[in-house]
Amino acid sequence: MYLSKRRGEYPEMPLRVSKLLKAQKSKCTHCALYFIPTDLVEVDRIIAKLLRGKHTYDNLQLLHRHCHDTKTANDGSMESQP
């Protein structure tokens, strides 16, 4: 919750990231650990675009960068890329 509550103090934080932080209660959906201000976070499609996933809030999640790398490697979304 820390980061989502502090959005007003970090105006460079994109609104999309702020909304996802609040919806996820400031936790990474992959590892379930809380995000802290020094974490590198990335917006991820739950269902990858290559697998026909939409770019809508209900298909987006915030993940730690390393969690995003792990998820992407394991979900098959990179298999179709050259």
Rank of each mutant, 00 (worst) to 15 (best):
L51A: 14
L62C: 03
T70Y: 11
P11T: 02
A48V: 04
K22F: 10
Y2I: 11
S4I: 00
D75C: 06
S26M: 08
D75G: 03
T70E: 13
D69C: 03
K25R: 15
K27A: 06
Y34C: 08
K71D: 01
A73N: 14
V41M: 07
H64T: 02
E12S: 14
N74D: 11
D39G: 01
S77W: 00
R16N: 04
T56G: 01
L20Y: 10
V17R: 01
R7G: 08
N74E: 14
L40I: 08
D69W: 13
E79C: 06
E9G: 13
Y34L: 12
R65I: 00
M78P: 00
N59S: 07
K5P: 03
V17D: 06
C28S: 05
V43F: 03
L50M: 11
D58Q: 07
G53W: 13
Q24D: 06
K25C: 09
A23T: 05
H55E: 13
Q81H: 14
Y10P: 01
H30T: 07
D75R: 05
V43K: 07
K49T: 06
K54Y: 00
D39I: 02
K54Q: 14
M1E: 10
Q24I: 03
H66I: 09
H30W: 14
L51I: 10
S77G: 13
S26W: 09
R45Y: 11
M1V: 09
A73W: 08
Y10E: 15
T29G: 12
P82Y: 15
L63N: 08
K49N: 06
S26H: 15
L21N: 00
F35K: 07
L21R: 04
N74M: 03
S18F: 04
L20S: 14
H66G: 04
T38Q: 07
H66S: 12
G53E: 01
L50W: 01
S77M: 01
V41D: 00
D75A: 05
T72D: 02
R7S: 04
P14S: 12
N74H: 10
I46S: 05
H30S: 06
N59R: 08
Y34N: 11
I47M: 02
T29C: 04
P11C: 04
D58T: 08
R52W: 08
H30F: 15
H66P: 04
D58A: 12
Y34E: 12
N74P: 02
K49L: 08
E42P: 01
K27L: 04
D75H: 05
